[in-house]
């Protein structure tokens, strides 16, 4: 295997995790999605060479995995023990608290944005992807990426500066 791609596979995990976290807003769900995506990615390792942008492809897989996860969640009945708060596992561990703290400001500022705008904002601001890379991840055109980003930033400008 190409060592460069293997290193990219290892080093991109943080980015992928953050993106999963941004999508799910939940540490455990993000970890599950990341784990499933990494397994799928690993199974496709023979194809890595043929991908023109490994990270964009991996990000897209995270997004697809998240969409599948949402579908599964919707089809589940609401009677499982995990969904009942008093039976849920305690999740307030030290690590999660830190992660929650770090997510808090970004999430509170962007929580009212439509999902697509928030995802694009994350990919641009946090992961620092180019427009064409974002377009690949989100499976839309670059022009659409620019429009969504413009709208998201206009909304944020009003929020952080206050309406004048």
């Amino acid at each position: 295997m190409n060592p460069r791609l293997y290193n990219l596979f290892i080093s991109s995990q943080r980015k992928l995790y953050r993106f999963a976290l941004s999508l799910t807003k939940d540490v455990k769900d993000a970890e599950d999605i990341l784990q499933d995506t990494l397994l799928k990615l690993w199974k496709l390792r023979d194809d890595w060479e043929s991908w023109d942008n490994f990270e964009a492809y991996a990000m897209r897989m995270i997004r697809n995995e998240y969409l599948n996860y949402i579908k599964k969640q919707k089809s589940l009945t609401h009677s499982t023990l995990e969904e009942i708060p008093e039976f849920a596992e305690p999740s307030q561990t030290e690590t999660e608290m830190t992660t929650d703290d770090l997510m808090f400001r970004f999430n509170s500022l962007t929580s009212k944005l439509p999902d697509i705008q928030r995802n694009i904002l994350h990919l641009r601001e946090i992961e620092e992807l180019e427009y064409k890379e974002i377009a690949k991840v989100m499976e839309i055109s670059e022009a659409q990426v620019k429009v969504y980003l413009y709208r998201a930033r206009q909304y944020l400008k009003e929020r952080v500066h206050g309406k004048r």
Partner: peptide, 12 residues
Amino acid sequence: DFSEIGHDEVLF
């Protein structure tokens, strides 16, 4: 803040 989030351990 958000950019600092990341796993200390490598998952895979």
